[in-house]
């Protein structure tokens, strides 16, 4: 498998997240003895991203994907846990270190219509990171870099875009500008937070191909956040499935897609349209709504919606454990049915 051979050594991740938590306090009128309540946006997440790897993070709206990305950028302060970039800890960075951090790790935001300052020209927007970091202080060099970044992002000829304002561009073009603004710093990690969810279906593939290209040509590691299983299959090396602030299943893309273990993953996959009718699975429609991340269910947080929950599920909170034979890239899931060897996998 070409994808498998592109995997870096598992012992040298570029990004390493350990037991990351981000709770937001809920503002409430406090009566006597009322306890502080929290939104558990990210609640104990650990994973690694290898050099040049694309890790897809999949999950429903509100499961904490954006919060996780913002925490990785140092834009939200983690409640606990830590993030290592090339072995450097985020927690130990001062403001200068944080600035350098944001030179190596860049982010593409969900909404290309909102993430560009409406009063700045495209040229100024893409040049801004260079100005902020004092890179390429002379004008020609800076402009050359801006043009290169724009062209690498698929805006050709770049000189046509330099003096235009964001409102003159389409959504897809704007997202390319955002990507160019990230690339101009030559980052080694790119966090792409649902970069295509606000775009027309027809443009999505182009942007995804652009990201795939970047990984190929520049060896950038990408954390690709999405709520849509369908968009990732063709370029993610691994998939992590997130539910209510936790990773419930993680593994190689093909492995997870062909042999999903967690009932939530199965449900997500069952609703992805499959072109070949013979491969079509039975649709699993989840009962109920996503519980709110303030009052989490006891035990396994998926149990109220789980079609195969049994009496242990509301009691025991399953850990994310490897399953099956231990190959180099583990496939892990957090489900009592999967991890208790005695239980048959349904």
């Amino acid at each position: 498998m070409s994808k498998a051979t592109m995997q870096p050594e598992p012992d040298s991740p570029i990004l390493e997240v350990t037991d990351l938590r981000k709770l937001f306090p809920v503002k409430k009128v406090r009566l006597f003895g009322a306890k502080d309540r929290f939104v558990h946006a990210v609640d104990g997440v650990s994973f690694q991203v290898g050099h040049g790897e694309v890790l897809a993070l999949v999950g429903e709206s509100g499961c904490g994907k954006s919060t996780l990305a913002l925490t990785l950028m140092g834009l939200e302060k983690p409640t606990s846990g830590d993030i290592l970039f090339e072995g450097d800890s985020l927690a130990s960075q001062n403001s200068r270190g944080l600035k350098t951090w944001r030179r190596h790790i860049q982010m593409v935001f969900q909404d290309p219509y909102e993430s560009l300052n409406p009063l700045m020209t495209i040229g100024d927007i893409v040049a801004e990171p260079l100005v902020v970091h004092g890179i390429a202080p002379n004008r020609e060099e800076r402009e050359a870099r801006v043009i290169r970044a724009l062209e690498d992002s698929g805006l050709k000829p770049a000189t046509e875009y330099l003096h235009r304002l964001p409102h003159e561009l389409s959504g897809g073009q704007r997202q390319r500008v955002v990507i160019a603004g990230a690339l101009v710093l030559e980052p080694t990690v790119l966090l792409a937070d649902e970069p295509v969810s606000m775009l027309d279906v027809s443009i999505r593939a182009e942007i995804l191909n652009l990201l795939a290209d970047l990984r190929q040509k520049r060896g950038i590691s990408i954390l690709f956040i999405t709520h849509d299983m369908g968009t990732i299959a063709h370029f993610a090396d691994r998939i992590a499935v997130m539910y209510l602030g936790r990773i419930v299943e993680i593994g190689q893309t093909l492995e997870v897609l062909s042999n999903p273990q967690h009932p939530y993953t199965k449900a997500l996959l069952s609703v992805v349209p499959v072109p070949n009718p013979r491969l079509r699975r039975e649709r699993i429609i989840l009962q109920g709504e996503t519980p709110n991340p303030i009052d989490l269910p006891s035990g396994c947080r998926f149990h109220p919606r789980c079609p195969v929950a049994f009496e242990q599920c509301p009691v025991v909170d399953p850990r994310l454990l490897s399953i099956g034979d231990q190959d180099e890239i583990p496939h892990a899931a957090a489900c009592l049915l999967v991890n208790a060897e005695s239980q048959p996998v349904p």
Partner: peptide, 21 residues
Amino acid sequence: RKFVLRARAIGAGNWHIIRRH
């Protein structure tokens, strides 16, 4: 607004954000 968050994400400090955004 999101472009202020983006400015932070590229490493901009408070003063830069006030001035430019």
